[in-house]
Design a protein around this nucleic acid. Sequence first.
DNA 1: TATACTTAGTTGCTACAGCAACTATTAAAT
DNA 2: ATTTAATAGTTGCTGTAGCAACTAAGTATA
Lengths: 141, 141
Amino acid sequence: MNIALKDYISIFIHQTDLKITGCVKERLAPFNLAPEQNLIMMLLWERDGRNQQELSEQLEKDKTNITRMLSSLEQKGFVKRVIETYDRRSTRVFLTEEGKALECDVIPLTDEFHRTVTSGVTEEELAIVRRVLSKMRENIK
Amino acid sequence: MNIALKDYISIFIHQTDLKITGCVKERLAPFNLAPEQNLIMMLLWERDGRNQQELSEQLEKDKTNITRMLSSLEQKGFVKRVIETYDRRSTRVFLTEEGKALECDVIPLTDEFHRTVTSGVTEEELAIVRRVLSKMRENIK
DNA sequence: TATACTTAGTTGCTACAGCAACTATTAAAT
DNA sequence: ATTTAATAGTTGCTGTAGCAACTAAGTATA
């Protein structure tokens, strides 16, 4: 092979992402939350009553994913969907009491995970990583 | 929100990975190859006759993924599976003529994509990104 | 040799991920 | 006012991704 697989930075990023997501999944499992479901919850803990459109934009995800993740979260009893009165196409997503209660357990966990992941990495290095990844996104836009 | 979603480097990496993979998917679509299927093909172009165990290790993927991706590649006519005579549990994976023929189209494409992604990024920056991502993997091992 | 352990691969399950096509509803244009 | 556009969300499809449990086959041990 002219270029080894690991030399493709895209593959390196991809595999790193998988490891990280796998670890997050493990840590969230006790709370019956999947990683991406947790991102929705984080947005709702900040402010609930958002519609799916907004969640889709904030998470840069296809709206179909949002639909399905919310169905799961609703089934678990963490959120409820309410049809918007003034525009019946739109649904607003609210936290249940159970969903609200998760925050105090999960936020410390994600913050602690962030510290674990970045331990031994300087602020400068982290800034460079952010800048380079942003540049890469620009490059393929 | 105390920490915005984008401030979690894990999420930033994840979203970057999704953008990159999405772009790779588009570019490979004309060749009827999905991104991860292409990784298998790259290993086979280098040397075919590998067994699924080896592909699994090289790609750091669960063996179930390998099984399913190979089924798809086999159905497309790019590879064929042959049961190993000396150990009938093992199957060796070989390229078909059609599979071999893809190489000369796809390798230049992936190399060009790599150049596109990394354009405007210095070798030093790239080295830092690799080092930091490796460190992160270590941190959660 | 018979039993237990190990290994290679498959199948079933859940969770993303995004495209295409669909319904329902609202807004805009003629 | 009626037709047309656009918008919000859902469903069906294919492709990852990994765990658990399984079959089949080979190895080790009593």
